[in-house]
């Protein structure tokens, strides 16, 4: 999938906004939102929040996790842990990009936050590259990837699945040709190699 499609999926997440106008509840197919009361926080899908922001009809309330201290902790935890830690949000990168892009002035210390999120992303991506390397070297046909977000998973496509497909193809070919070449040798050899 294209990154913009992941972004599209991420845009369905709910964010909190403070509208500067009042309006009755609005009934969308994806749910009902409102009523809008000027100055009072309320929840809307991210795409709607960004749209209203662009029309200068609201402020976006920074999500709980979009905070220097929280993010510093996540970063430290991510550095310490051998595994991927659980992110505060399944689409943290999309949310950060859209909110910081459209509403940077609503987020305190926006540029520092941007840097920390980028750091966290980099740490996780380098971890991901290391584990992909390990997976392939172990002749991987299976891997577990808890806590990776959709955007992160998407960033290793098509490389990882295709490398695994290729490895599988090579194994299939090896298996097809092996019996022929082993025909004149003894069976104990195949038995031996299995036990290793």
């Amino acid at each position: 999938m294209d990154p913009y499609e992941i972004e599209f999926i991420g845009e369905n997440r709910i964010v909190s906004i403070i509208p500067n106008f009042s309006h009755d509840k609005i009934f969308l197919i994806c749910g009902e939102f409102g009523p809008f009361r000027a100055g009072l926080p309320m929840n809307v899908p991210l795409w709607l929040g960004v749209m209203l922001k662009q029309k200068q009809k609201c402020r976006i309330v920074p999500p709980d996790w979009m905070d220097i201290e929280v993010l510093e902790n996540i970063k430290e935890e991510e550095k310490r842990s051998r595994f991927f830690t659980k992110m505060p949000n399944e689409h943290y990168m999309v949310e950060a990009k859209l909110i910081l892009g459209a509403a940077a002035e609503d987020i305190p210390r926006a540029s520092e936050i941007k840097t920390i999120i980028k750091d966290i992303w980099d740490i996780r991506m380098s971890k991901l590259r290391t584990s992909m390397d390990a997976l392939m070297k172990s002749g991987g046909n299976y891997g577990r990837l808890d806590h990776l977000t959709m955007m992160e998973i998407n960033s290793v496509k098509p490389l990882l699945p295709e490398a695994m497909d290729e490895l599988h193809r090579i194994k299939m070919m090896a298996r097809k040709t092996m019996p022929a070449s082993l025909n004149n040798s003894t069976f104990s050899q195949t038995g031996g190699s299995q036990n290793i």
Binding site: N141, Y142, L148, I153, A174, Q194
Partner: peptide, 18 residues
């Protein structure tokens, strides 16, 4: 494919795999 040791795995709710 290389051996005959088929592996069996469980998928827990919410877990992710390739």
């Amino acid at each position: 494919l290389t051996g005959d040791q088929d592996e069996e795995i469980d998928l827990e709710e919410g877990s992710q795999h390739i």
